[in-house]
Write a protein that binds this DNA or RNA. Sequence first.
DNA 1: GTCTATAATTTGATAGAC
DNA 2: GTCTATCAAATTATAGAC
Lengths: 174, 174
Amino acid sequence: MSKKEELLKAAQDKVRLGGYSNFSFRELASEVGIKSASVHYHFPTKADLGAELAHHYTNSFLAALGEPDELKASGKNPIEVYTQLFRGALVTDKKMCLCGLLGAESDSLPDKVRLEVQRFFNHNLQWLKAAHLANDEPNPAQAAIKTVSLLEGAMMISKTLDDNSYFELATQTV
Amino acid sequence: MSKKEELLKAAQDKVRLGGYSNFSFRELASEVGIKSASVHYHFPTKADLGAELAHHYTNSFLAALGEPDELKASGKNPIEVYTQLFRGALVTDKKMCLCGLLGAESDSLPDKVRLEVQRFFNHNLQWLKAAHLANDEPNPAQAAIKTVSLLEGAMMISKTLDDNSYFELATQTV
DNA sequence: GTCTATAATTTGATAGAC
DNA sequence: GTCTATCAAATTATAGAC
């Protein structure tokens, strides 16, 4: 893994725990064994790092999901696949969704970072709309915003109350 | 309004836009016309201010809701009253729920602040459980976590995408 | 690519006068 | 309650050497 990738990974962990202000160039540098001035070689400004972080996070997230139609074709429920990706982030990583946290502080982010967070949610809504369509939901657009809202909210509350059973209860279909 | 109340109000606006790290004693002091050293007279540390802020926010929130049974008795749907309180925060204030934002950064908050955010959600879940019970929901506890998760998530996404129609779509019952 | 050195600013907090 | 003065630390960022 390159130093640049190491920096992004270290930053992701910190942002997912405390938001955009929860990492500094000095801390990241220290964690990967270089100096803070060297971080500026890879990322001119903190906003550049934040934007690239959110961009890569979005790409990895979408790549991990696959395509709704293909999932459906292989006998899987794409909405359950989507839910499972959130569950993994909460249970395995024990961290918030990067863009869920950045989205909450959206108003105070540098423009280029906020744009990447918007990209995350636009792509997620698009994916979920296709997924609900494949499931023959009568209103795929509404089901999409409901799904992502519920998951982001349940994740945040489960983390806050330090009890994943809230996430399970919220995502349990009766 | 006392200086202390003015400070809390100024802090609330800043936290609801960018989280716990989005306010400083100097900024707050400047906004209410005193010096930062004087802020320490009212709140010994930043964590003290944050905790008191979340505590008052929770109390105001619950007071604005009223009691589920009384709402029901007066012909109102308590869940709609609850939804309307969130809608007002988003549409009128154009800001996130204070504890929704603080909850997302929960892992990086001082203990006494995190405890107050937990208190907010525990009380909200209790209130919603009673509300859904009054509505004869078969599983009030599940309906409660679903309701607050959906609202917090839809609020966050609507703010991120700067489009309140997502909140309306998510809260619309088909 | 990484370093040393450093600048400019902000931050939370304290001491002590009034 | 509020002030002046001040501190120690942290932060983003840059210049220039290697």
